Computed example of a mutant assay.
Amino acid sequence: MSKSDQGNTGLGFILKDTLQWSNEAPINYPQVIAGFIGMAGCISIGFYLNNLMFGLLSTFGVMITNDTSSDGTIKKHTTELFRTMATGTIAIFIGIIIAGHGWITGGLIVMISTLAALLGGISRSVAIASVQFVILSIIGSSMGDGGLHQDIFIIPAYFATGSLLGIIVSVIVGFLKKSRDHKVSVQNAKISYKQRFAHWRSKLTHFSGWKYTVRVALCMIAAQSIGIVFHLERSYWIGLTVAIVLKRDLAYSQRRIFQRGIGTAVGVLLGSCLLLWSLPEWNSIVVIGLLGAVRPIFKNRSYAIYAMLMTPLMLMMFSTGSPVTAYLLEYRLLDTMIGCVLAYVLGFYIWKKASQGNAVGKT
């Protein structure tokens, strides 16, 4: 996408951009191979041990570490992978602890999301980690509501195990391909964390430095309130959608909202095909592995297709060992659309109008 398109928020452009395919990002083959081996491997272990909860949570661990990219050496990439593993495990654990308390849980998720959005302004790496922390905290709160009847340490332990397996596979494949040995990010090395922190603090002296934090807070308050007031069974998908699509740049947020909404709608149609037949265990392993492998490719090249593929992948993972139901598909689509609408209205539209009003007032 050209720089001249960055601020384009017209509906026609958004719909065109949603269907656009980008070849800018090269395919990271070690990431693709590691995604297949890690996700298929964890599901296989879950089936073999007759422990489907391990299969689900360990696969989440692989997904998070597989999303971690680096322009540095294998040593630097490994460090980032372990940092991601630690962040995710802590987030899952916190989510489990705060789960099942109605408005208190909702309020704590809002607080976590708001604080993460604020701290994410320090640097790009912190921003990525903060979004991952929010997403996994919400997932943890959905798993710790008492329905799993698991010890609170078991769930994060399963996630950490999957993350560790993902790290091992990623490092081995990356070493064999030697794709990162001689790449060093010079730009990041020029700016110290102390300088980034000082710059972040200076931005907080103006409201513009708080704008993204306020946008996140408004959307999360609405998401949690809707889920609690209307007793939506899988309302955590609303908050997850908000956390995924709401970006600091307004134009980028709008594009992600439309891409996520359209991709999920098409993905639900694909997921409905799963109602027609039930795949055998080993066929499910292959399909989950393949979807896990191509995820990074489509995430970088067509986010709408990525969202479309993630829907059946999530449905297969959450319904491992049981058939996908129309009820599950309906909830996935409904909650995603609610999250997209909240992100659009409270996280984009009113801020765009306010910016336009200020621009008119200055002329």
Rank of each mutant, 00 (worst) to 15 (best):
V214H: 06
V214G: 12
R215G: 13
R215F: 09
V216H: 03
V216K: 09
V216W: 00
V216Y: 03
A217S: 10
L218I: 06
C219L: 10
M220T: 13
M220A: 12
M220Y: 08
I221F: 10
A222G: 11
A223I: 08
A223M: 08
Q224D: 12
S225V: 07
S225Q: 06
G227K: 00
G227V: 05
I228E: 14
I228Y: 12
F230M: 11
H231E: 15
H231I: 01
H231A: 14
E233S: 13
E233R: 13
R234H: 08
R234Y: 11
R234C: 06
W237Y: 04
W237R: 00
I238M: 11
I238A: 00
G239T: 10
G239A: 13
G239W: 06
L240G: 07
T241P: 09
V242P: 08
A243Q: 03
I244C: 00
L246V: 01
D249I: 07
A251V: 07
S253N: 07
Q254N: 07
R255D: 09
R256P: 09
I257A: 02
I257R: 07
R260M: 08
R260E: 03
G261I: 02
G261R: 04
I262R: 05
T264N: 02
T264R: 01
T264F: 05
V266W: 00
L269N: 06
L270I: 14
L270P: 11
S272F: 01
S272I: 02
S272Q: 12
C273M: 15
C273L: 15
L275A: 11
L276R: 05
L276D: 07
W277F: 15
W277V: 13
P280T: 03
P280W: 02
E281C: 04
W282F: 14
W282D: 11
I285N: 10
V287R: 11
I288C: 12
I288G: 00
G289N: 01
G289E: 03
L290K: 07
L290H: 12
L290D: 12
L291M: 14
A293N: 09
V294M: 04
V294T: 05
R295Y: 12
R295T: 14
I297M: 14
